[in-house]
Amino acid sequence: MVDVNLYSKKKPRLKLLTVLILTGILVLPVAAFRITLWSLQMVEFNRLQSQYPIAAREMQSFRSSEFAAARQRLDQQERNLSAMVTRVRAETAKVEKDLVYAGTVQRVFSSFSDSFSQTGNGEKVFLNRMAVSRGSTMDMSYYDIPFAEESTQTLSLSFDFHQSFMESLLKTFPAPDADAQEINFLFLNALYNQLSLDLKGM
């Protein structure tokens, strides 16, 4: 028939229970979604567990609460490892340099030794000075004194050691700084050689 209401000022009021039920109704879909998601995760986990049993044992022993700490540990270890790699890389470069340097110096000595072995029967070699300044130069000076010919008792003018040594050095040092001077005095014929080898970059 007709609707008439002389008082329409009433404000809606709800009981606590109703509010709780209403909240429950609102929360229910979210909870259902989470449960569904969790169920799907479990199904997938079980599938993986049956497929990879060894990995599954590790996964089971892993607790999610330890994840943050484990991650922190891993991060720290990664930083340490990175620093170590940098150090090792620097050390390797240094060792490489040392090896090159050692090889170079050794070749100088080998050349010196080989040349002396080849020509030592007819010549005397006096090593006057040898100074190695790493990363800078290798300075040496020596006297090459050939023996007199026994048959003729004449002075020999051939400095075989010096020639052999310099030839050998040229293979390693293309442009050695050498200052060779002959000394002739009475029955002495000698060669004084001042040699400076560039070791820069080694």
Partner: peptide, 29 residues
């Protein structure tokens, strides 16, 4: 305080411009 009678829910309001109104004194209410 007045209230104009409305047709109940689901019913058509009457045609025309006649309006039945109920009123009371605010003090009485």
């Amino acid at each position: 305080i007045i209230e104009v009678a409305k047709a109940s829910r689901g019913e058509k309001p009457p045609a025309g411009n006649r309006h039945l109104a109920f009123a009371t004194r605010k003090s009485s209410l």
